[in-house]
Design a protein around this nucleic acid. Sequence first.
DNA 1: TTCCCGATTGTA
DNA 2: ACAATCGGGAAC
Length: 201
Amino acid sequence: MKPDINYVNDVLAKTALLAAPLLLGCELIRHTLDGDIRLKIVETEAYHQDDPASHTYRGLTKRTAPMFKSGGHLYVYFTYGMHYCLNIVTGQKGIGEAVLLRAAEPLEGIELMEHNRGTKNLHQLASGPGKLAQALGIFNTELSGRKLSKNSLQLAAPQLTIPSDDIIASPRIGIRHATEVPWRFYLKGNEFVSKYQKTVR
DNA sequence: TTCCCGATTGTA
DNA sequence: ACAATCGGGAAC
């Protein structure tokens, strides 16, 4: 059964905490000159402005301004001196929250993603936030602050409804604060979910 | 203007 | 277990 056509808009209007599990199963589509890239989101994390682990915890800055935009905008940040991470902003304008896309299952444009990633290992193409952005060909913060669109990145509703039993909530990865709250969501048993990282110093 | 460190990844 | 690598942002 095909989900409602307004699924995506409805999800993006919600708070990050509510939207994060609902983005699982949604498809990311990027049109490039060499063809389309399409992936299914399998792992997400929610960040909001009263959250010590969030970039917006200490208020609006030039970098995090996109997170304060309305749902449907993009937030891309650069981290560890070498990786880009892609977020989808949710909720209303003025509230700094977003959903980090942590992992996705390659569906289309595999060769393009292999080229972007420099590996042919299917399970390594987008099984982590840095990898996911790289697979999509995101090598700078150009998309940060832009809206989802055909020219940037598109988001489509799940092909099939995701049973709520298939969604697992767990602590977020790689953060130092608020390590206990289960705001990471992933599809149970999915092979393209990121490998759990070791403890943070 | 300095300095610490991160919503990570790949390699040893 | 650890290096790579650099910009954001708090502190000085």
